[in-house]
Amino acid sequence: MQGPVFSFVPGDSFLHTLDPRTKLAAVMLLGILTFRTESFFGIVTLFVFFFALASISGLPARVFLRAVRPMILFIIFIFFAQLFFTKGHVLTSFWILNPSLEGLQNGLRLSARFILLLLFAALMTASTDPSAITSGIERMLRPLPLRWLGVNSFELATMMNLSISFLPILFERAERTKVAQASRGMYFGKNPLRSVSALAIPLIKGVIRDAEELALAMESRGYQGTRRTSIHELRMQRRDWISLFALILFADFMLRF
């Protein structure tokens, strides 16, 4: 069977036992690091770092393949856009295209960064129970004065978590709509605007319907939108502080290049 992208894979590795806040902070830090790293040496180091974490996590390789796969076309597109549209030393030219050396470098760098981001995100989501992610986000948002906005940190965290778990459903729905409209000759139609609405309207209406159903289901199971006593009593352990400290040292080291 096909598993959804970015889903949780239970386990008892070191990564699994870290506090969700540690992992959230780590992903943010690694995300920043990924986009601040310019040199090829730095990017290779980040990949090595990823592989080290991945082997500690004991997660199967398919978890990571699944995270990258839906974005492959996008990444390839970015690569070629960089390759052909960056000005610099022309490598060869054929037809109207002049790939440049700088383009090749930029292309490789940007695609590598995207892949790294997806990999680190997959590492976190696969090693953290979704409800623990919610609790983690909630705890991190609690100091913010969100009441002024009419929400509390728990609602916000639930919302974020739901959006993530909705993504696969959204993709599936989009695919079904595309297939149904293609069968009615959408691609032969003369009006491109009509094709856009033929795809977007069923999708939006469907998602709204899904959301309403979900809200009803949640309410009928007692969801109040207020903080409840969590089954995940979050406590930062020594290993969390050590991990964070190590990560900050690592970031400092990386940023010196």
Binding site: T177, A180, Q181, R184, G185, F188, P202, K205
Partner: peptide, 28 residues
């Protein structure tokens, strides 16, 4: 070939049923 998929709601997008049914023939 006329196709009917299980989730009918996934394909409806027009304001009227007339437009909805007319979408296919107009495309062709």
């Amino acid at each position: 070939i006329g196709m009917v998929f299980q989730q009918a709601a996934d394909q409806l997008f027009c304001r009227t049923i007339y437009d909805e049914i007319a979408f296919g023939p107009l495309n062709f």
